[in-house]
Amino acid sequence: MPTVKKMMYVNRRAPHGTGYALEGLEVVLIGTAFEQEVCMAFIGDGVYQIMQGQDTRAAGMKNFSPTYKALGDYDVTRLYVEQESLSERGLSVDDLMPLTYEDEDDDWAEKPSVQVIVRKELSQIMAAQDVLFNF
């Protein structure tokens, strides 16, 4: 059996101004087919990707923010959000979508996927990964 690698997708861009966020999200979803240990980090303007209440109808764009809610189904259950990036932007965890996953090992209990942590802690988690992708 091939060894399972720890993979982190680092999201650094705002959602709608460029294609990075949507394409990065698609890579994450497609990549889950390889059954690796996947997590995501949201730093810098990347924290804007999971902001609540995005409504793109008037702007005439596809709203892919609901797709982050499917990450739990794809077994992506750890979404690290950097506290410093939130604070710099005047945001708190309440401004973010309440993303959750269902824990198969705990009678499908619904648990939060978003973990707000400080940069120092996130950098340690980053250092423990085998593979990193930056979008």
Binding site: Y48, M51, D55, T56, N63, S65
Partner: peptide
């Protein structure tokens, strides 16, 4: 406004 709305502001 449409760009604010798209970004959840």
């Amino acid at each position: 406004w449409p760009d604010l709305q798209a970004r959840g502001i």
